[in-house]
Simulated scan of single mutants.
Amino acid sequence: MILFPAVDIRGGKCVRLTQGDYNKEKVYSDAPTEMAKEWQGKGAECLHIVDLDGAKTGESINKAAIQAIAEETNIPVQVGGGIRSLSVIEDYVASGINRVIIGTAAINDKKFLMDAVEKYGSKIAVSIDARNGFVATDGWTKDSTVKAIDLVKDLEAIGVETIVYTDILKDGMLKGPNFEELQTINDATTMNVIASGGVSSKEDIHKLKNLNMYGAIIGKALYDGTLKFEDVLDGEENAR
């Protein structure tokens, strides 16, 4: 299972939100690139980058900062947040981004998603952000009437290979992921499932690995010191 340290960017700074609430923000660094290089130095195999401004506005506001991370690190980087055009995907791929994550547009613009998957294949992933089993959009600020499990089936039919599944109510709470929901999603699809939201202990990571998750994103627990990435990585190595 791949462990992805998260680097969430808002206003050019590395921040964390609680349950996706833009009014509950904590700034951890004024230099996202340096934070990304720090996780690489601690042994990260991949990085998960989110443009929080982009997720809310639909514009890739922090694109330059994200491209700088791709250029100054030498591990795979996946990026999400406000990606709603093929030109933005092209810019990211050209700058060395390994995987581009489509979120809101996967709900609101299926043709765009299909075109992206047709053109870029495995470089496209979809973020499913769910609240009480229903998909949320626009930086988690809007709830849809689409059930997460139904979206999973649609995405697989389109040809998406990887999804990032986040239970919003678990995100930033340091109380563990929604294991039951994650198992339901993973059992319902052959796509790679990356778990996100609430991962806060070695036990959480071992449980996710036992559920055969493709990957897990770790955010607030790393920044608050609840988890040390080196310790988690050692545990993963010993378990292999």
Rank of each mutant, 00 (worst) to 15 (best):
A6V: 05
G12S: 02
K13T: 02
V15N: 03
R16G: 00
T18V: 11
N23P: 02
E25I: 03
E25M: 06
V27Q: 13
Y28A: 04
S29V: 06
Q40I: 02
G43T: 04
A44G: 02
A44Q: 05
C46Q: 04
C46P: 00
D53E: 07
G54C: 07
A55Q: 08
E59C: 04
S60H: 00
I61G: 01
Q67A: 06
E71I: 09
T73M: 13
T73W: 13
N74F: 15
I75E: 06
P76Q: 12
V79Q: 01
G80C: 03
G81H: 06
G82S: 05
I83Q: 00
S85N: 07
S87F: 12
I89S: 00
E90H: 11
D91E: 15
Y92N: 03
Y92Q: 03
A94S: 14
I97T: 10
I97H: 03
T104A: 07
K110I: 14
K111S: 10
A116H: 11
A116V: 10
E118K: 14
E118F: 15
K119G: 12
K119V: 11
Y120H: 10
Y120Q: 09
G121P: 08
I124Q: 02
A125S: 10
F134V: 14
A136V: 13
T137F: 08
T137S: 06
D138L: 14
G139V: 15
T141Y: 12
D143L: 14
S144R: 14
T145N: 14
K147W: 13
K147N: 13
I149A: 05
L155P: 03
I158S: 09
E161N: 15
E161L: 12
V164I: 14
T166I: 09
L169G: 00
K170Q: 13
K170V: 11
M173P: 03
M173T: 10
N178G: 06
E181T: 13
Q183I: 14
Q183V: 13
Q183D: 12
T184C: 10
A188F: 08
T189V: 14
N192F: 07
K202N: 15
E203M: 15
E203W: 13
L208N: 03
Y214E: 10
A216G: 11
I218A: 03
D231C: 08
V232I: 10
G235P: 01
G235S: 09
E237I: 04
N238P: 00
A239F: 04
